[in-house]
């Protein structure tokens, strides 16, 4: 699925005297099977931006095209767009409303028009995929632990089998174990062909998982580029107020000292390989 975002502007609080832009002239493309991280300070417009991608917010000007069709065109079925572009909000476990895990997860599938039976079967499958075992299915969702709740809530979106999965700070408030489990699930989905877009403040996760990075600052997109290029761009990082991650720092220092180090290799595994190779040579 190809999503084109073209020059969108969004004004906050249209009634007030001075216009406050939440998004200003934002453009970028999302291609099939991308893994994109959106980074930037709080209040830079990240959450507002992702809410445009499934049509929850409507841009005041500009256009968003999904597979060539404008989502703002007349008679466009926004509801079915939301099944294709799944959006997981921050703290998604706050939206639980059912008395069992399984019925809460089924909600999305039922809204798509699947029968009760089918929805239940789909929910079971997806719950197993995210690592929730069968004995939890009939539990009261509010009684689960934080990590389990988050997984169930994310399953509630994944059950619709969206092609694009957007997550707003999925790791917020999770313990390290739950977090790495969650990211593993997401990475597996990505390998199966899903497009993943996530907002995060954790640069280590960005480096490990994302292929591309969208850098935002003051309602504008500063840069859309490959992860390694973004973190090696000192000017960009200081402009966006982002501290250079240790991995990048390490590779730069190694390169200064030993030369011929590929500073674009910043994932944990790549770094180790690069160092091992250097020693062997």
């Amino acid at each position: 699925m190809h999503i084109e975002v073209k020059n969108i502007n969004y004004i906050y609080d249209k009634m007030s005297k001075e216009k406050k832009y939440a998004l200003r002239d934002v453009s970028f493309d999302i291609f099939d099977n991308d893994y994109i991280a959106i980074i930037g300070e709080t209040g830079s417009g990240k959450s507002t931006l992702v809410q445009h991608l499934n049509g929850l917010l409507k841009a005041d000007s500009g256009d968003i095209k999904v597979d060539g069709v404008s989502i703002y065109s007349k008679n466009y079925d926004l509801n079915s767009l939301r099944f294709k572009v799944g959006l997981v909000f921050q703290y998604p476990e706050y939206q639980f409303f059912s008395e069992t895990v399984i019925s809460d997860v089924s909600f999305g599938a039922l809204n798509m028009g699947y029968s009760e039976e089918e929805a239940k079967e789909m929910s079971k499958n997806i719950l197993r995929t995210v690592g929730i075992s069968d004995e939890y299915f009939d539990k009261f969702p509010f009684m689960l632990s934080g990590g389990e709740k988050r997984k169930v809530a994310i399953a509630g979106v994944l059950v619709m089998n969206p092609e694009v999965i957007i997550l707003d700070e999925p790791q917020a408030g999770l313990d390290p174990v739950s977090k790495s489990e969650l990211f593993k699930v997401l990475y597996d989905l990505h390998k199966k062909g899903k497009t993943i877009i996530m907002i995060t403040h954790n640069m280590e996760d960005v480096i490990e998982y994302a292929d591309k990075v969208i850098v935002m600052k003051n309602s504008k997109v500063l840069k859309v580029d490959k992860t390694a290029s973004v973190f090696n761009d000192d000017k960009l990082l200081s402009e966006a107020n982002i501290i250079k991650p240790e991995q990048v720092e390490l590779m730069n220092k190694l390169n200064e000292k030993f030369k011929n180090i590929d500073i674009k290799k910043i994932k944990q595994k790549e770094i180790v390989e690069e160092i091992v190779n250097k020693i062997k040579r």
Binding site: F83, F89, P92, Y94, F107, G108, N111, G156, V157, M160
Partner: peptide, 13 residues
């Protein structure tokens, strides 16, 4: 507003 949006993202009308 937030919960409404979250449920709309799951296809609620």
């Amino acid at each position: 507003d937030k919960i409404m949006k979250a449920q709309m993202s799951r296809g609620a009308k």
